[in-house]
Protein backbone atom coordinates (compact mmCIF):
# COMPACT_ATOMS: atom_id res chain seq x y z
CA UNK A 1 0.00 0.00 0.00
CA UNK A 2 2.30 2.75 -1.10
CA UNK A 3 0.01 5.54 -2.17
CA UNK A 4 1.79 8.26 -3.96
CA UNK A 5 2.96 10.71 -1.34
CA UNK A 6 0.83 9.34 1.47
CA UNK A 7 2.78 9.12 4.70
CA UNK A 8 0.01 7.97 7.02
CA UNK A 9 -3.31 6.35 6.35
CA UNK A 10 -5.74 5.51 9.13
CA UNK A 11 -8.80 3.42 8.29
CA UNK A 12 -11.75 2.91 10.61
CA UNK A 13 -9.58 2.97 13.72
CA UNK A 14 -11.34 1.93 16.91
CA UNK A 15 -9.88 2.18 20.40
CA UNK A 16 -12.02 1.15 23.33
CA UNK A 17 -11.43 1.37 27.07
CA UNK A 18 -12.78 -1.11 29.57
CA UNK A 19 -14.02 0.81 32.60
CA UNK A 20 -16.18 0.03 35.61
CA UNK A 21 -18.85 2.08 33.91
CA UNK A 22 -18.84 -0.07 30.77
CA UNK A 23 -16.97 0.07 27.51
CA UNK A 24 -15.88 3.57 26.58
CA UNK A 25 -15.57 3.88 22.83
CA UNK A 26 -12.94 6.60 23.03
CA UNK A 27 -12.25 6.44 19.31
CA UNK A 28 -14.91 4.80 17.23
CA UNK A 29 -14.10 4.60 13.55
CA UNK A 30 -11.81 7.37 12.42
CA UNK A 31 -10.28 7.43 8.94
CA UNK A 32 -7.95 9.89 7.30
CA UNK A 33 -4.98 10.19 5.02
CA UNK A 34 -2.01 12.45 5.49
CA UNK A 35 0.22 13.35 2.57
CA UNK A 36 3.92 14.04 2.89
CA UNK A 37 4.56 17.57 4.10
CA UNK A 38 0.91 18.13 4.93
CA UNK A 39 -0.50 19.40 8.23
CA UNK A 40 -3.70 17.92 9.57
CA UNK A 41 -5.61 19.50 12.42
CA UNK A 42 -7.72 17.41 14.79
CA UNK A 43 -10.14 19.53 16.76
CA UNK A 44 -12.38 18.49 19.61
CA UNK A 45 -13.34 19.04 23.20
CA UNK A 46 -12.02 17.01 26.08
CA UNK A 47 -13.16 13.42 25.80
CA UNK A 48 -13.72 13.67 22.07
CA UNK A 49 -11.02 11.08 21.39
CA UNK A 50 -8.54 13.33 19.63
CA UNK A 51 -5.60 12.42 21.85
CA UNK A 52 -6.46 8.73 21.97
CA UNK A 53 -6.41 8.66 18.16
CA UNK A 54 -2.80 9.72 18.11
CA UNK A 55 -1.67 7.57 21.00
CA UNK A 56 -3.24 4.69 19.05
CA UNK A 57 -1.18 5.49 15.98
CA UNK A 58 1.96 5.22 18.12
CA UNK A 59 0.56 2.18 19.94
CA UNK A 60 0.96 4.08 23.22
CA UNK A 61 -2.46 3.22 24.60
CA UNK A 62 -2.10 1.76 28.10
CA UNK A 63 -3.29 -1.78 27.76
CA UNK A 64 -5.32 -2.73 29.80
CA UNK A 65 -7.67 -0.89 30.16
CA UNK A 66 -7.38 0.37 26.57
CA UNK A 67 -7.30 -1.68 23.42
CA UNK A 68 -7.20 -1.00 19.71
CA UNK A 69 -10.07 -3.18 18.60
CA UNK A 70 -10.22 -2.50 14.90
CA UNK A 71 -9.01 -0.64 11.87
CA UNK A 72 -5.72 -0.12 10.06
CA UNK A 73 -2.86 2.25 10.68
CA UNK A 74 -0.49 2.30 7.72
CA UNK A 75 2.61 4.44 8.06
CA UNK A 76 4.72 4.75 4.93
CA UNK A 77 3.49 1.37 3.71
CA UNK A 78 4.02 -0.33 7.07
CA UNK A 79 1.02 -1.83 8.82
CA UNK A 80 1.74 -0.52 12.32
CA UNK A 81 -0.81 -2.74 14.04
CA UNK A 82 0.84 -5.93 12.83
CA UNK A 83 4.33 -4.97 14.05
CA UNK A 84 5.91 -6.41 17.15
CA UNK A 85 6.35 -3.93 19.98
CA UNK A 86 10.10 -3.85 19.36
CA UNK A 87 9.53 -2.90 15.76
CA UNK A 88 7.13 -0.18 16.84
CA UNK A 89 9.84 1.18 19.14
CA UNK A 90 12.12 1.57 16.15
CA UNK A 91 9.52 3.91 14.63
CA UNK A 92 8.70 5.83 17.79
CA UNK A 93 10.90 8.84 18.26
CA UNK A 94 12.72 8.17 14.99
CA UNK A 95 10.16 8.29 12.22
CA UNK A 96 7.11 9.44 14.19
CA UNK A 97 7.71 11.85 17.05
CA UNK A 98 5.31 13.40 19.52
CA UNK A 99 5.10 16.51 21.61
CA UNK A 100 2.62 16.79 24.41
CA UNK A 101 0.38 19.33 26.00
CA UNK A 102 2.04 20.08 29.26
CA UNK A 103 5.76 20.79 28.96
CA UNK A 104 5.88 21.12 32.74
CA UNK A 105 5.15 17.45 33.28
CA UNK A 106 6.23 15.91 29.98
CA UNK A 107 9.94 16.35 30.59
CA UNK A 108 11.56 14.18 33.23
CA UNK A 109 12.25 16.47 36.20
CA UNK A 110 14.98 14.17 37.52
CA UNK A 111 17.17 14.12 34.44
CA UNK A 112 19.31 16.78 32.81
CA UNK A 113 18.16 18.29 29.53
CA UNK A 114 21.23 16.81 27.88
CA UNK A 115 20.44 13.28 29.06
CA UNK A 116 16.92 13.49 27.72
CA UNK A 117 18.02 14.94 24.39
CA UNK A 118 20.97 12.63 23.88
CA UNK A 119 19.20 9.36 24.54
CA UNK A 120 17.05 9.75 21.43
CA UNK A 121 19.91 9.98 18.97
CA UNK A 122 22.02 7.47 20.87
CA UNK A 123 19.16 5.04 20.54
CA UNK A 124 18.04 5.65 16.99
CA UNK A 125 21.03 7.12 15.16
CA UNK A 126 23.73 5.20 17.03
CA UNK A 127 25.45 8.38 18.16
CA UNK A 128 28.24 8.12 20.70
CA UNK A 129 28.20 10.53 23.63
CA UNK A 130 30.08 13.35 21.94
CA UNK A 131 28.06 13.14 18.75
CA UNK A 132 24.80 13.02 20.69
CA UNK A 133 25.83 15.98 22.81
CA UNK A 134 26.80 18.10 19.83
CA UNK A 135 23.62 17.09 18.04
CA UNK A 136 21.62 18.09 21.12
CA UNK A 137 23.27 21.51 21.19
CA UNK A 138 22.50 21.93 17.51
CA UNK A 139 18.86 20.99 18.05
CA UNK A 140 18.48 23.45 20.94
CA UNK A 141 19.94 26.09 18.68
CA UNK A 142 17.48 25.14 15.93
CA UNK A 143 14.49 25.62 18.19
CA UNK A 144 15.75 29.02 19.29
CA UNK A 145 17.05 28.38 22.78
CA UNK A 146 19.61 31.03 23.69
CA UNK A 147 22.93 29.81 25.08
CA UNK A 148 22.20 26.13 24.30
CA UNK A 149 25.39 24.75 25.84
CA UNK A 150 24.61 26.00 29.31
CA UNK A 151 21.00 24.84 28.94
CA UNK A 152 22.15 21.34 28.08
CA UNK A 153 23.59 20.87 31.54
CA UNK A 154 20.56 22.28 33.31
CA UNK A 155 17.37 20.64 34.49
CA UNK A 156 13.88 21.21 33.09
CA UNK A 157 12.64 23.09 36.16
CA UNK A 158 15.16 25.82 35.46
CA UNK A 159 13.36 26.61 32.20
CA UNK A 160 10.16 28.53 31.56
CA UNK A 161 7.13 26.81 30.04
CA UNK A 162 7.88 28.08 26.57
CA UNK A 163 11.51 27.00 26.78
CA UNK A 164 10.50 23.55 27.97
CA UNK A 165 8.18 23.17 25.03
CA UNK A 166 11.08 24.15 22.78
CA UNK A 167 13.17 21.43 24.41
CA UNK A 168 10.33 18.97 23.75
CA UNK A 169 10.28 20.01 20.12
CA UNK A 170 14.07 19.74 19.87
CA UNK A 171 13.83 16.24 21.29
CA UNK A 172 11.03 15.26 18.93
CA UNK A 173 12.84 16.54 15.86
CA UNK A 174 16.27 15.13 16.80
CA UNK A 175 16.03 12.21 14.38
CA UNK A 176 14.40 14.24 11.63
CA UNK A 177 11.08 12.34 11.80
CA UNK A 178 8.75 12.07 8.86
CA UNK A 179 5.71 12.70 11.03
CA UNK A 180 5.32 14.97 14.02
CA UNK A 181 2.26 14.59 16.24
CA UNK A 182 1.70 17.68 18.37
CA UNK A 183 -0.92 17.07 21.04
CA UNK A 184 -2.19 20.44 22.29
CA UNK A 185 1.34 21.81 22.16
CA UNK A 186 0.39 25.33 23.22
CA UNK A 187 -2.62 24.88 25.51
CA UNK A 188 -0.62 25.30 28.69
CA UNK A 189 1.24 28.35 27.42
CA UNK A 190 0.57 32.09 27.32
CA UNK A 191 -0.69 33.57 24.06
CA UNK A 192 2.56 35.32 23.34
CA UNK A 193 4.48 32.10 23.92
CA UNK A 194 1.86 30.15 21.95
CA UNK A 195 2.52 32.45 19.01
CA UNK A 196 6.26 31.75 19.31
CA UNK A 197 5.79 27.99 19.43
CA UNK A 198 3.32 27.86 16.53
CA UNK A 199 5.64 29.99 14.46
CA UNK A 200 8.49 27.65 15.31
CA UNK A 201 6.54 24.55 14.29
CA UNK A 202 5.49 26.21 11.05
CA UNK A 203 9.04 27.25 10.30
CA UNK A 204 10.59 23.87 11.11
CA UNK A 205 7.95 22.09 9.09
CA UNK A 206 8.78 24.22 6.08
CA UNK A 207 12.51 23.62 6.52
CA UNK A 208 12.45 19.91 7.27
CA UNK A 209 9.42 18.87 5.24
CA UNK A 210 7.88 17.07 8.21
CA UNK A 211 4.24 16.08 8.07
CA UNK A 212 2.35 17.28 11.11
CA UNK A 213 -0.77 16.27 13.00
CA UNK A 214 -1.84 19.14 15.22
CA UNK A 215 -4.32 18.28 17.94
CA UNK A 216 -6.10 21.16 19.61
CA UNK A 217 -9.37 22.40 21.04
CA UNK A 218 -8.72 25.87 19.65
CA UNK A 219 -10.11 26.50 16.19
CA UNK A 220 -7.95 29.59 15.96
CA UNK A 221 -4.78 27.55 16.24
CA UNK A 222 -5.62 25.19 13.37
CA UNK A 223 -6.94 27.95 11.10
CA UNK A 224 -3.52 29.29 10.26
CA UNK A 225 -1.53 26.09 10.55
CA UNK A 226 -3.26 23.31 8.66
CA UNK A 227 -4.33 22.14 5.23
CA UNK A 228 -7.17 20.00 6.45
CA UNK A 229 -9.12 19.50 9.62
CA UNK A 230 -10.97 16.72 11.39
CA UNK A 231 -13.60 17.71 13.95
CA UNK A 232 -14.21 15.02 16.56
CA UNK A 233 -17.05 14.65 19.02
CA UNK A 234 -17.73 11.76 21.41
CA UNK A 235 -15.16 9.52 19.73
CA UNK A 236 -16.58 10.07 16.24
CA UNK A 237 -15.43 12.13 13.29
CA UNK A 238 -18.16 14.70 12.87
CA UNK A 239 -16.69 16.58 9.99
CA UNK A 240 -13.57 16.51 7.94
CA UNK A 241 -12.69 18.99 5.26
CA UNK A 242 -9.94 21.13 3.77
CA UNK A 243 -9.28 23.95 6.25
CA UNK A 244 -10.64 26.80 4.14
CA UNK A 245 -13.81 24.93 3.31
CA UNK A 246 -14.41 23.89 6.88
CA UNK A 247 -14.24 27.47 8.12
CA UNK A 248 -16.19 29.05 5.27
CA UNK A 249 -18.87 26.44 4.68
CA UNK A 250 -19.14 23.93 7.53
CA UNK A 251 -21.58 21.10 6.87
CA UNK A 252 -22.14 19.97 10.44
CA UNK A 253 -24.20 21.72 13.14
CA UNK A 254 -21.53 20.98 15.75
CA UNK A 255 -18.80 22.63 13.72
CA UNK A 256 -21.05 25.57 13.05
CA UNK A 257 -21.82 25.88 16.75
CA UNK A 258 -18.14 25.76 17.69
CA UNK A 259 -17.26 28.43 15.18
CA UNK A 260 -20.06 30.70 16.30
CA UNK A 261 -19.37 30.34 20.02
CA UNK A 262 -15.87 31.79 19.77
CA UNK A 263 -16.05 35.50 20.61
CA UNK A 264 -14.98 37.39 17.55
CA UNK A 265 -13.08 40.60 18.27
CA UNK A 266 -14.53 42.22 15.17
CA UNK A 267 -18.08 41.91 16.51
CA UNK A 268 -19.71 44.44 18.79
CA UNK A 269 -19.39 43.92 22.49
CA UNK A 270 -22.52 43.28 24.51
CA UNK A 271 -24.15 41.00 22.00
CA UNK A 272 -25.02 37.63 23.48
CA UNK A 273 -22.61 34.94 22.43
CA UNK A 274 -23.91 31.92 20.57
CA UNK A 275 -23.79 28.92 22.88
CA UNK A 276 -24.12 25.22 22.31
CA UNK A 277 -26.47 24.17 25.10
CA UNK A 278 -26.00 21.19 27.37
CA UNK A 279 -22.98 19.02 28.03
CA UNK A 280 -20.96 16.51 26.00
CA UNK A 281 -22.46 13.03 26.38
CA UNK A 282 -21.13 10.24 28.55
CA UNK A 283 -19.14 8.20 26.04
CA UNK A 284 -19.80 4.99 27.97
CA UNK A 285 -23.55 5.34 27.44
CA UNK A 286 -24.19 6.80 24.02
CA UNK A 287 -27.75 6.93 22.73
CA UNK A 288 -28.58 5.00 19.55
CA UNK A 289 -29.01 8.11 17.43
CA UNK A 290 -26.68 11.04 16.82
CA UNK A 291 -24.49 11.72 19.90
CA UNK A 292 -24.94 15.45 19.38
CA UNK A 293 -28.73 15.33 19.00
CA UNK A 294 -29.50 16.61 22.52
CA UNK A 295 -27.43 19.74 21.98
CA UNK A 296 -28.17 20.39 18.31
CA UNK A 297 -30.18 23.44 17.29
CA UNK A 298 -31.72 21.78 14.23
CA UNK A 299 -32.47 18.38 15.70
CA UNK A 300 -35.33 16.33 14.23
CA UNK A 301 -36.92 13.06 15.25
CA UNK A 302 -34.71 10.94 13.04
CA UNK A 303 -31.59 12.28 14.80
CA UNK A 304 -32.62 10.66 18.07
CA UNK A 305 -33.56 7.37 16.49
CA UNK A 306 -31.02 6.66 13.80
CA UNK A 307 -27.28 6.94 13.73
CA UNK A 308 -26.41 9.57 11.13
CA UNK A 309 -24.64 8.76 7.85
CA UNK A 310 -21.17 10.06 6.97
CA UNK A 311 -22.16 12.18 4.00
CA UNK A 312 -19.73 13.28 1.32
CA UNK A 313 -20.20 16.96 0.48
CA UNK A 314 -17.27 17.62 -1.80
CA UNK A 315 -13.94 16.07 -2.59
CA UNK A 316 -12.40 15.50 0.85
CA UNK A 317 -15.30 17.07 2.71
CA UNK A 318 -17.48 14.72 4.79
CA UNK A 319 -19.99 15.33 7.55
CA UNK A 320 -21.67 13.00 10.02
CA UNK A 321 -25.22 14.33 9.94
CA UNK A 322 -28.65 13.38 8.67
CA UNK A 323 -28.91 16.86 7.22
CA UNK A 324 -25.33 17.43 6.13
CA UNK A 325 -26.29 18.72 2.68
CA UNK A 326 -28.87 21.12 4.12
CA UNK A 327 -26.44 22.46 6.70
CA UNK A 328 -23.83 22.92 4.01
CA UNK A 329 -26.29 24.85 1.84
CA UNK A 330 -27.20 27.00 4.81
CA UNK A 331 -23.52 27.82 5.39
CA UNK A 332 -23.10 28.66 1.74
CA UNK A 333 -26.07 31.02 1.78
CA UNK A 334 -24.75 32.76 4.91
CA UNK A 335 -21.34 33.06 3.32
CA UNK A 336 -22.81 34.57 0.18
CA UNK A 337 -24.96 36.96 2.20
CA UNK A 338 -21.95 38.10 4.24
CA UNK A 339 -19.83 38.74 1.17
Amino acid sequence: MTNNGTILSVKDLKTYFQTEDGVVKAVDGISFELKKGETLGIVGESGSGKSVTNLSIMRLIPEPPGKIVGGDVVFDGIDVRSLSIDEVRKIRGKRIAMIFQDPMTSLNPFLKVSTQLMEVTQLHLGHDKTQAYEHGVKMLETVGIPDPRSRMDGYPHELSGGMRQRVMIAMALSCDPELLIADEPTTALDVTIQAQILELIKDLKARMGTSVILITHDLGVVAGMTEKIIVMYAGKVFEQAPTKELFSTPANPYTRGLLKSVPDPAHEQGKELYQIPGLPPDVAHLPPGCPFAERCDRVEDICRKEYPPFVQINEGHHSLCHFAKEVYEESRREKAAAA
Binding site: S160, G162, M163, D190, V191, T192, I193, Q194, A195, Q196, L198, E199, D218, L219, G220, V221, A223, G224, T243, K244, F247, S248, L259, V262, P265
Partner: peptide
Protein backbone atom coordinates in the same frame (compact mmCIF):
# COMPACT_ATOMS: atom_id res chain seq x y z
CA UNK B 1 -0.33 45.11 20.19
CA UNK B 2 1.76 41.98 20.54
CA UNK B 3 -0.78 40.39 22.87
CA UNK B 4 -3.61 41.02 20.46
CA UNK B 5 -1.67 39.90 17.45
CA UNK B 6 -0.68 36.68 19.20
CA UNK B 7 -4.26 35.47 19.49
CA UNK B 8 -4.99 33.20 16.55
CA UNK B 9 -8.14 34.05 14.63
CA UNK B 10 -10.46 31.21 13.66
CA UNK B 11 -10.46 32.22 10.04
CA UNK B 12 -7.86 30.77 7.67
CA UNK B 13 -8.07 33.69 5.28
CA UNK B 14 -7.31 36.28 7.92
CA UNK B 15 -4.62 34.03 9.41
CA UNK B 16 -2.92 33.70 6.03
CA UNK B 17 -2.59 37.40 5.44
CA UNK B 18 -2.28 39.13 8.79
CA UNK B 19 1.04 40.11 10.17
CA UNK B 20 2.07 38.82 13.54
CA UNK B 21 4.19 40.57 16.11
CA UNK B 22 6.07 37.81 17.85
CA UNK B 23 7.56 38.86 21.15
CA UNK B 24 11.00 37.58 21.89
CA UNK B 25 11.66 35.63 25.05
CA UNK B 26 9.64 35.20 28.20
CA UNK B 27 8.28 37.55 30.80
Amino acid sequence: KALISAVPVPDPEIEATRERIILKGDV
